[in-house]
Design a binder for these strands. Structure first.
Length: 277
DNA sequence: AAAACGACCAACCGCCGGCAG
DNA sequence: TCTGCCGGCGGTTGGTCGTTT
C-alpha cells in the first residue's frame, strides 16, 4: 500500500477522510502540496485533492443519475465531443450538473452511455492494449458562404421551457419573423437573434453561446453577436447541423443555470422550412 | 458451493498549461 | 527565455461486488 517515498496508496480509511476534511475546513481548498503535512496524512497532494473533490466535498450528489441529468450529459457531450482537444470536457459537463463531479460524469459515460450510444462496432483499437476509443464522426460545416446561401433559421427552445413558455415578443406577439433571403445581412441576423433570444428569457439573464461546430472547437460565453460574428468569420454554413445556443440565467437562490436552444440552419433551396416544436 | 464473468467506480498515472523565479 | 513547481485534467487501472454458469 505504499508508493514512492513511502506515501500511502489505495483506498482511503475513515480516519484519513476525517483528517483531510478537518484540514480543508480549517485552511480551505488549494495549496494542495501543503495538505498532507497540515492534515497529517501520508498521502501525495494529488491523492488528497482527488479524495476531497470526488468524495468528501460537501453537497456531492450520490446515487443514480436522473433522466434529466443523463439527457444533459448526452447533449453536452454531443456539443463538446467534437472539440479537437477534449480538455475540460468532463468538468464542463459536471459544472452543469449540481452535485456531480467530473469523475462521476466520466464514469457514468464510460460505463453506461458509451456502449449504449455508440455500439461496439464504432469503437476502434488505438493501441496494442485492450483500449478502445469511440470513433466520433467529425462534423464540419459545409464550405458554403453563409451570407449568400443561408436564408432560414428556426429555433427550438429547450424542451421543458419552450413547451411551457413559448417565446414571445416584448409586445406579446409571436416569434419574431425569420429573415428572408433578400434581407439576410449580418446586421439583420444579429438583430433577429437578439430579438428572439432576449424576448424569450427572463430580463435579467445573460446570453452566451456555444459554437462547437465552428472550426471544430468550442467557444463559451459571449453574446449573440459573437455567435454571428463567428459564423460570418468562417464564411461557412451549418446546414443540416444542430447547434446549441446557451442562455445563462440566475435563479432566485443566486445559482446559475442554462437554457438550451437547439438551432437548425438549412438551405432554403432545399425546400420549405420545417417548424421545429 | 464455487469459479468465472461482468459492471461499477474510486483511485492512480501521465500529461499539460499557468505561473513564479 | 528557460526551468521547475503546482493544480487540474482525461484516460486507464484494479479492487469490489453482484450475477451467471
Amino acid at each position: 500500500m505504499e508508493g514512492k517515498f513511502g506515501v500511502r496508496k489505495g483506498a482511503w480509511t475513515t480516519e484519513e477522510d476525517c483528517l483531510l476534511k478537518k484540514c480543508i475546513e480549517k485552511y480551505g481548498e488549494g495549496k494542495w502540496h501543503q495538505v498532507p503535512l497540515r492534515a497529517g496524512i501520508n498521502r501525495c497532494r494529488k491523492s488528497c485533492r482527488l479524495r476531497w473533490i470526488n468524495y468528501l466535498r460537501p453537497n456531492i450528489k450520490r446515487g443514480e443519475f436522473t433522466a434529466d441529468e443523463v439527457d444533459m450529459i448526452i447533449r453536452l457531450h454531443k456539443l463538446l465531443g467534437n472539440r479537437r482537444v477534449h480538455l475540460k470536457r468532463w468538468s464542463l459537463i459536471a459544472g452543469r450538473l449540481p452535485g456531480r463531479t467530473a469523475n462521476d460524469v466520466k464514469n457514468y459515460w464510460n460505463t453506461h452511455l458509451k456502449k449504449k450510444l455508440f455500439g461496439q462496432s464504432q469503437f476502434v483499437k488505438t493501441s496494442n492494449k485492450a483500449q478502445t476509443t469511440p470513433r466520433f464522426e467529425v462534423i464540419k460545416p459545409k464550405p458554403r458562404n453563409l451570407a449568400k446561401n443561408l436564408a432560414w433559421m428556426q429555433v427550438r427552445r429547450d424542451r421543458k421551457s419552450v413547451l411551457d413558455n413559448p417565446p414571445q415578443t416584448s409586445a406579446g406577439g409571436e416569434i419574431p419573423s425569420i429573415p428572408s433571403p433578400a434581407t439576410l445581412q449580418k446586421s439583420n441576423m444579429t438583430s433577429w437573434w437578439s430579438n428572439l433570444l432576449e424576448n424569450s428569457v427572463k430580463d435579467d439573464c445573460q446570453i452566451g453561446t456555444s459554437c462547437s461546430n465552428i472550426s471544430g472547437h468550442s467557444e463559451k460565453e459571449g453574446h449573440v453577436t459573437k455567435f454571428i460574428d463567428n459564423v460570418f468569420a468562417q464564411g461557412e454554413t451549418m446546414e443540416g447541423y444542430n447547434n446549441t445556443v446557451t442562455l445563462e440565467e440566475e435563479d432566485e437562490h443566486g445559482c446559475w443555470g442554462n437554457l438550451f436552444f437547439d438551432v437548425d440552419l438549412w438551405d432554403p433551396l432545399g425546400g420549405e422550412p420545417n417548424i421545429l416544436t
